[in-house]
Design a protein around this nucleic acid. Structure first.
Ligand SMILES: [Mn+2]
Ligand SMILES: [Mn+2]
Ligand SMILES: [Zn+2]
Ligand SMILES: [Zn+2]
Lengths: 138, 138
DNA sequence: CCATACTTGCCACACAGTTGCATTTGCAGT
DNA sequence: ACTGCAAATGCAACTGTGTGGCAAGTATGG
């Protein structure tokens, strides 16, 4: 049983482990991220948390979660960040961006580091797949 | 000798081949793209073409070039599009985004299409490398 | 319970890009 | 070369995504 209060609990525990202040906004945002199988945009979270905090606080909480290493963010072509709490260690997988519904999905496929010319210092690889998700293919 | 007027000429020829109207703005923008080894952002182009056209026209010309298949655009984490005229056929190479100077470089490495779960319709793959370019490594 | 540093809400602002509309311009047809 | 007209442009206002400043509120250690 992973109902809503379970995700709230996990959020509280996570915040406590990081020695961080446990606030309404952080709990709610983190619980929503734990509950989601895919990265969520600011806009999606704002819909669901309208009565919890205002949009600026939401931006600040999300950035704080990323700074703490609790969440990570995924860039997409529509200039919107999506946030996810999957373990940072294995976040080198590809992301699929559906241009039908705009959702982003985590894929199993890993992005293998290619070689770069002499002089370049390669630090990170990101692979973005584009197309239609099962829903949008119909 | 590939001086400036040579790029202008190539731009005119390219526009003519596409049966398109040959305008000051299109010639200037396309010539700048031909002259550049790396994808250029709107901002970079605006600096160099301030006296040629205004920024809205620059946006429109760039989008038009992409629609025509003459140019293609590359997304980066800073939410800024860069534009390039390399042949569209082989534009499936990776791009390197330097977080020192913000420039984007075309790499030789190709992004190989990974397999995706049943139901997803994969149409495009983009691989973005991040790190420091030779200039910024020092 | 208190003090205080951290967090939040609200405002205004920044930046990339788009839309509406009147004016100008490239060029096909004469 | 001239003309007519669709296409391109300039300008102003607008949208969407995200940030910064600052006063008010609150979580937590003592
Ligand atoms: Mn992911
Ligand atoms: Mn390229
Ligand atoms: Zn979809
Ligand atoms: Zn650099």
């Amino acid at each position: 049983m992973t109902d809503n209060s379970d995700f709230e609990l996990r959020a509280r525990e996570c915040l406590a482990r990081h020695g961080a202040r446990i606030t309404r906004a952080r709990c709610a945002v983190l619980a929503r991220l734990f509950a989601s199988a895919r990265p969520l945009s600011h806009h999606e979270l704002e819909q669901q948390l309208a009565d919890v905090c205002d949009r600026v606080t939401l931006y600040r909480v999300l950035n704080w979660l990323v700074d703490q290493g609790i969440a990570h963010k995924v860039s997409a072509e529509d200039r919107v960040w999506r946030f996810s709490v999957e373990s940072h260690a294995d976040h080198r997988h590809a992301h699929f961006h559906c241009h039908g519904c705009g959702m982003v999905f985590c894929m199993d496929a890993k992005a293998r580091s290619p070689s770069v010319p002499q002089g370049f210092d390669l630090q990170d690889v990101e692979m973005t797949l584009r197309g239609l998700c099962p829903e949008c293919v119909q």
